[in-house]
Amino acid sequence: MERYDLLIVGAGAAGMAAALGAVRGGAARVLLVDRGDRLGGVLPQCIHHGFGLSYFHEDLRGPDYAARFAALLADAPEVALRLDTTVLELSADRTALLSSRAGLERVAFRRCLLCCGAREKPIGALDVAGTRPAGVFTAGQAQKLVNLGGYDLGRRIVILGSGDIGMIMARRFTLRGCEVVMMVEQAAAPGGLARNLHACIEAYRIPLRLRATVTQVHGAARITGVTVRDLDTGAEELVPCDALVTAAGLIPERELARALLHGGTPPDWLGFSGNCEHIHEIVDSVTVQALALGERMAKM
């Protein structure tokens, strides 16, 4: 069985920085694993600017931000990289079961850092009634399909929730010639960053409906519209659309650790970094946190 000082699960912004931090902290053998086929996690699909403003003092796009760290990792022989590889389970005996086309492999490690990011709340978790037709996407899923797949999701789009990915996708859809009919937000204020509100919503005059929500999805095979309810007046309105994108919050992805938690506390050899630790507003703070944590775990 191969043995490593540190196993890092997830090679997004957090995992890449943590691996470099671990090398800085003296780790000789780091294993960085990702289920995807490229480094960077969600960064490659974030083709907008706004990355690296505080860390690099430059305005980078997501893929460029990821490329900076990928270049550093290429020069770090201490870090072994396995892409297209899924960690199936972590065991209390400090081994992990890895699965890839190359086979099933168990590896041993001294410490482990989960950098698995976050998952998006699906429509079914949102208490929205009606049918379940095609044409309903989460914002991150939409971002990947549009930016990496080159697909078109619809021509008239409603976005439920006003988180940052939702706002960025509203602008993206608009730039691609689709009409964002409405962005609907339950709260009295938008959920995302002020700079995204200005740059993505206000600049493109996208209608933002605060204190409102989608209560029902219509359409048998493909979505034909949604019912939007005003939470103050109770008034409901049928809004025709051919796609619904939900941007209703992220949940830290910590499932691998679940079997190892005792009363909510992980064992001392296991850590969390990036969005699977808590949801960060900007990637730069993920990088800073993960570098420090990777270094600290290597020295432990």
Partner: peptide
């Protein structure tokens, strides 16, 4: 490719 039966194409096309 459809989600679930005729007319339920997941995507709207490729731009």
């Amino acid at each position: 490719v459809c989600k679930d039966g005729a007319g339920s194409e997941v995507l709207h096309g490729t731009l």
